[in-house]
Every structure is written in C-alpha cells, then in structure tokens.
Design a protein around this nucleic acid. Structure first.
Length: 421
RNA sequence: GGAGGGAUGGCCGAGUGGACUAAGGCGGUUGUCUUGAAAACAACUGUGGGGGAAACCUCACCGGGGGUUCGAAUCCCUCUCCCUCCGCCA
C-alpha cells in the first residue's frame, strides 16, 4: 500500500511513476474518496465532541424538564452521528479497496520497458559446459533413470503434477537441506511455517485482491494455500511494533508452493518447470528503511552463492518497469542455464518492497525511544526454486552414459553417493 | 464435535451504566538526594486518525464486528482465540 499522504501531496509524481508500469490507475477517484473521508470525519467528530460534553452534563443533572430536553436533543444528534458514521465507513472501505489495487512505485533506477524482453542483464557467471554429446532434457533423463514419473502424477492429480522417485526425490530433499543449511550459515533463521494461512495474509503480502485467480483456497475454513513462503513470512510480524535494535531480521523457510497457473500453456508445460505444486526455499528480510538496499544486495549475493556452490552457470537480470512484481520497487532475477531444454530458467526473484508490504501488514518499529513509529522495509528472494534447480542439476551434470554426477555439496545428504543411475 | 470458564495498557491486575480523564502494582524514562551506585521520593510513561505553522484541540480504540442507550470496559447479539473437562484422532 502506498502512503495516502504521498498521493495527496505529490500526486503527479505518483501518477507518472505508476504509469511506467504500463497500466492506468485511477488516482483521481482515490483523491476524491480521501477528501470526502476527511470532510465527513470533521463533521462527525465535531458532533461527537458535543455529545460527549452534553452527555457528561446530563449525568450530573436532576431529572427535570431541562434534562429531558437535552436527552431528546442528543437523541437527534446521535441519529445524525450514526448516519455520518455509516457514510464514513462506506467511503473508507471504498478508499481502502482502491488503495489495495495500487501497485508499488518502481525504484527510480528501474529500466524502462514493457515486458521481460526489456529486462537488463547485469552479469553472467560461469561458462557453458562443453558437451561431447547432445545433452538431454530433464524429462527424458527423469524417465530413463526412473526418477520422475509424469504419467502417475497426472493419474493422481491431473496435468502439471508429477512424482519424484528414489534418487529424484532424494536429490530434491538434499537440495532443500543444502539450501537451508547454507542460508542459516549466511545469517538467516530457519522457520517451519503453516502451508495454509488466512486470507488476510495474502492481502498484506500484496497477492490479494489482484491475484485471487492464482490461489487455491478452502472457503469454509478461510484456509489459503501458500503460493510462496513470502506470504506467511510477510505476516510473521503483522500488527507488531518492533524494537529497532532487533532489525534487520533475516528468515529462511522451506515450503511447498501452490499455484493455479491458469495463464500459461504449450511449451511451458513440458517437464517439471511449472507445476501447480512445487517446493521452494525462501529468504526474507525486515529492515530499517535506510538498510533495505544493502539487504537487497545481501539477498542477491546469498542466492548467487547457492548457484555457484552447485556449480551452475547463471545470469542476473534487473527487471524493467513493465515486468516488475506488484509489490516490488526493484527486482533482480537469477536464471540458471539448462543445456537439455536449452533455456535460461528463472530460479530466483529477489525484491525490495520498501514499506509497501509493511503498510499492508502494519509492521512497524520505533527508531529511537519516545519517537513515532515507522514502517519497516521488507525484502524477499527465492533461494532457490526447487524444480528448476533440480532441472539444472540434472541437465548440467548428465554424462554420455546416461548417469548423473551428483554435485559435491549435495553428497552429504545422498549417503556420499557420487552418481545417479 | 460437546459442556463450562476466560480475553482490560509493555506485564500483572481492579473495575456490572455517568469523575473511567481505566484504580493499584511491576517494569521503563527523567529528576531530587548521593563521590558513584543502590534505596527512597517525585513526575512522566499506549496506538492510530482528523484539524493546525505551532502550541494545542479533537475523535476512536478495554480480543474482533454489530447493537441497546443522552451516555458502554460495564448490558445484548455474534465471531475469533486461550484455558479446563469429555469425545475423536496422526
């Protein structure tokens, strides 16, 4: 959520900044509702102050004519107040829903652009491995080694579901453990989170109201399946006022992620790249506003370290204004190279959301004792998405004889095994 | 799932319709005293909104929402969460 005061004062800058995202937003309607709200508030509060004073006087009066005259008068004032209060409530809920639809303002340094073609590659790390045979895509590797079962996944749950077997399942588990341990050593505290959360968590994280299409949920129990650990992590300190000396807070968590993914089809469906259920290890930070850009670089460096430790070739891209996520001010993507399916796979998206989520989640801190509270800044980054990392590990480490060499950092969780197959 | 009991400020805890401007205590901050500390004493000690250049004024908030009333922490309805007991259960 943006600061309404900012919209009020720097209307044109806000309008211009949001326009860079490539869609129209109704700022005028917001300003209108805001003005209406304040006018109604002043009116109703004046009446309430009056009623409070008179009611107090009534309490001290004898039960005579004057008293009943005042009571009658206050009854009228009360009716007027409830009328105005109803109007205030209406305009406030209208204002709130409008505010919740507004995305974050892009960082001024964000490259201009309309879609992912305009994202800017910051650096490329690692060399492409020279194969003396044609590298296979992971769906062939997985089937041949019997470690990915597509048919039975579909039988159980429909398209976009698969089963990992034996070394496949174990390799994913090894990756999760490796990532969690690495992030812990990088200064994150690990947490195990609920995989279903209440709707309010999604609103606070900025996934609702806009992306309800993508979220599986059970209406009866207000149970919403997490689309990313970012959602519960954003809400860990919802409605809290933090002591400034505990900032920055760094968290890491493994969760499955559930997404409807209605939009894509065709080539995107092949293999395990984009399922309705996938695993992810997430990094998350809550920081002092002055520290969030430094924290962004930390998250990026920590995600990159995950790639280098696994020996993966990757590139870092800075997202353009048109590709930026709803709540983000600035986002880096990390893509790893997959030689079998012959494409860059996005394994991480690292964002500084500024105070956007903190406003929605009402997460504040007190800079120094006795001063007013301020909103923290929040950052999130995948560290990393599992299926795509698994794809990259399989495709990059395949051998001519069809076996897979297990990256050294993972062998600890693979009983010391060096190969699969 | 059933029955009963609860939810009050940073914490403990009093408060069953009008001085609640929420008692009292603990904790915290500042001050007095002291060489310093402790003790004692005193004052202050929540969040958010609106108006205002500011001083300041004002409104709301006693788990959430709604209602009754001139007036609600207090009465009514409803929801959530916690505790005790019973049932079921990995």
């Amino acid at each position: 959520m943006l600061d309404i005061q900012l919209i009020r004062q720097d209307t044109e800058q806000v309008r211009a900044a949001l326009a860079m995202r490539g869609s129209e937003f109704n700022i005028d309607e917001i300003l209108n509702a805001d003005k209406q709200r304040r006018e109604l508030l002043q009116e109703t509060e004046k009446l309430k102050a009056h009623r409070n004073t008179v009611s107090k006087d009534i309490g001290h009066m004898d039960n005579d004519g004057d008293r009943s005259k005042l009571v009658a008068e206050m009854r009228n004032v009360g009716d007027h107040i409830s009328l105005l209060d109803r109007q205030v409530r209406d305009v406030e809920s209208k204002l709130e829903s409008l505010m919740l639809e507004l995305p974050n303002i892009p960082d001024p340094g964000t490259p201009q652009g309309t879609n992912d073609n305009d994202n800017v590659t910051v650096r490329e790390v690692g060399k492409e491995r020279a194969f003396d045979f044609t590298p296979k895509p992971h769906w062939d590797i997985g089937s041949e080694l019997g470690i990915i079962d597509f048919e039975r996944g579909v039988k159980l749950s429909g398209s976009r579901f698969y089963i990992l077997n034996n070394a496949g399942a174990r390799l994913q588990r090894a990756l999760i453990s490796f990532m969690l341990d690495l992030h812990t050593s990088q200064g994150y505290s690990e947490c195990y989170l609920p995989f279903m959360v209440k709707q309010i968590n999604f609103t606070a994280a900025g996934q609702l109201p806009k992306f309800s299409d993508n979220i599986y949920h059970d209406v009866e129990d207000d149970a919403w399946f997490v689309t990313t650990a970012e959602v519960p992590l954003t809400n860990l300190h919802r409605d809290e006022i933090l002591d400034s000396d505990i900032l920055p807070l760094y968290y890491t968590a493994y969760t499955p992620c559930f997404r409807r993914e209605k939009v894509t089809a065709g080539k995107e469906v092949r293999g395990i790249k984009r399922g309705h259920q996938f695993d992810k290890v997430e990094m998350y930070a809550l920081t002092h506003p002055d520290e969030s850009y430094r924290a962004l670089e930390k998250l990026l460096a920590d995600a990159e370290e995950t790639c280098t430790k696994l020996g993966l070739r990757y590139r870092v891209r800075r997202l353009c204004t048109g590709d930026l996520g709803f709540g983000s001010r600035i986002t880096y993507d990390i893509d790893v190279w997959a030689p079998g399916c012959n494409e860059w796979l996005e394994v991480s998206s690292i964002s500084n959301c500024g105070d956007f989520q903190a406003r929605r989640a009402n997460t504040r801190f007190r800079p120094t004792k006795g001063t007013k509270t301020k909103y923290v800044h929040t950052l999130n980054g995948s560290g990393l998405g599992l299926p795509r990392t698994l794809i990259a590990v399989l495709e990059n480490n395949q051998q001519a004889d069809g076996t897979i060499t297990i990256p050294e950092v993972l062998r600890l969780w693979m009983s010391g095994e060096e190969t699969i197959g």
